[in-house]
Nucleic acid binder design. Structure first.
Lengths: 195, 195
DNA sequence: ATCATATTGATACAGCCGTACCACAACGGG
DNA sequence: CCCGTTGTGGTACGGCTGTATCAATATGAT
C-alpha cells in the first residue's frame, strides 16, 4: 500500500467547495473547475474522487441531507425534558434559514430541488422523503399532545407554513425574526388549551 | 414600408417557447438555440427580437408577471358579489399549481427566483414586490371582514401557508386537491364566527 | 415593375464545459 | 532496495454556448 491520504476528508473538502460556490454564485456556476479552485485542489483531483460531475452532485446532496439530519437531531438533543410544543418548535426552526450557514444550506438545497423538478437523473426522493419523515414525526408529537384538530392535517399545515416562511426569508421578503414570530403565533393557537 | 410582421406576436411566440423549454427541461436547458427550435423559428430570429440572452430572460420574467397578474384579476372578476372569504380563497388559489398551465408557471417562476438569489444582474424585485402586493391586498380584505387576530399577521400566515403548500405540490409531495383542502381548513378557522 | 428596407436565414468564432489521456511523485510491502 | 500501487498534476479534445457577420428574401410604397 503506497501513500495514503484521508479519502473522506478530501471528499468533504471538495464538497464543501461546491457548496460555497453554489451558495455564493448559484448552482449554475458550479463547474468541475470552479469547485476545484474553490476547494484549493486541481481539476484532476476532483475527477479522481468523483468520477463524473453527476456523482459529485449526488454526493453533495447526500452530505447536505446528512448534515441537515444531524443539526436536527442535535437541536432535539439540546432540549432537556421538553414539552411537545418545544419539540415541534425545535423541529420547525430548522426549516428556517436563520444563521448564514443555515441560509447557504437552504439556498443550495432549494437549487437542487428545482433542478430535480425537471432532471430525471437527479433523484427526487430526498425532497419528498425528508419532509415526509419530518411531517410524520410532528404528527406523532401533536397526536401525543392531544391538540385540537386532526394531527395529520395540523402537521401538514405546520410544515407548509414553515416552508413558506423559510422561502420568504430566503428571497429577502421577511427577516428570520418576523418569520419566527409568525410561526410561534401559529403554535400559540395550536397548543392553546381546549376550552 | 416592406412586409410587416406582428412584432409583439413574434416576441410572445419566442417567449412562450422559452417557457415551454424551461417547464419541460428546466431553466438550465434554456439556450438561444433550444428556444428557437421550440418556438419554430431560427436562432437569428431570437437574436433579432432580443439582442441578448439576458434581455430575453428579462422579457420572459415580465411576461410571466403580467400573465400572473391577469389570471389573478380574471379570477376575481369571475366572482359575483363575493364574500371576503371567497375573495381570499380566489387570491390564494392562484398560488397553487393546480392545472398543468399553472404548474409550468410556478415551476418556471420558482426557477427564476432561485436564479435571482445569486445572480445580481437578475432583478430580485418581482419576487418581493409581487407577494408584497398580494399580502397587502389580503390584509385589506381581512381587516374589512373583521376576522380575529391582527390582519397583517394573518395575511402573512395565509400567504406563507399557500406558498408552502404550492411548493409541496410542485415537488410531488402532495396533490393539488389535498393542498386546497388544507388551505380551506385554515380559512374555516380564520373566518369562524367569533364566539 | 422595382427597389429600399424590414425581416429572416446560414454560418463563423472565441470561450467554457465535462471528460479523457499521459506523465510522474510518493510510499510501503517484497 | 525497488517496484507496483495509489495519489496528483498538466493538458488535449470534442461539443455546446452566446454572439457577430454575411447574405438572401419578401413586401408594399412608389
Amino acid at each position: 500500500m503506497p501513500r495514503t491520504a484521508d479519502h473522506d476528508a478530501r471528499r468533504a473538502q471538495i464538497i464543501d467547495g461546491l457548496v460555497r460556490v453554489a451558495g455564493r454564485d448559484g448552482l449554475h456556476a458550479v463547474t468541475m473547475r470552479s469547485v476545484a479552485a474553490e476547494a484549493g485542489v486541481s481539476l484532476r483531483l476532483v475527477q479522481y474522487y468523483f468520477e463524473s460531475k453527476a456523482q459529485l452532485m449526488n454526493a453533495v446532496l447526500e452530505r447536505l441531507e446528512r448534515q441537515s439530519h444531524e443539526r436536527w437531531a442535535a437541536r432535539l438533543a439540546g432540549l432537556r425534558d421538553p414539552s411537545p410544543r418545544e419539540v415541534v418548535e425545535a423541529l420547525l426552526a430548522e426549516a428556517l434559514p436563520t444563521d448564514p450557514e443555515s441560509r447557504v444550506f437552504h439556498q443550495v438545497w432549494t437549487s437542487y430541488a428545482v433542478l430535480a423538478l425537471t432532471d430525471p437523473s437527479m433523484a427526487a426522493q430526498p425532497f419528498v422523503e425528508g419532509p415526509d419523515r419530518l411531517e410524520r414525526q410532528i404528527t406523532r408529537v401533536l397526536a401525543g399532545a392531544g391538540v385540537a384538530g386532526d394531527p395529520e392535517t395540523e402537521a401538514a399545515r405546520l410544515l407548509a407554513l414553515a416552508h413558506g416562511l423559510g422561502t420568504s426569508v430566503l428571497v429577502g421578503r421577511r427577516s428570520p425574526g418576523s418569520a419566527m414570530d409568525i410561526l410561534r403565533r401559529h403554535l400559540d393557537e395550536l397548543f392553546a388549551p381546549v376550552p
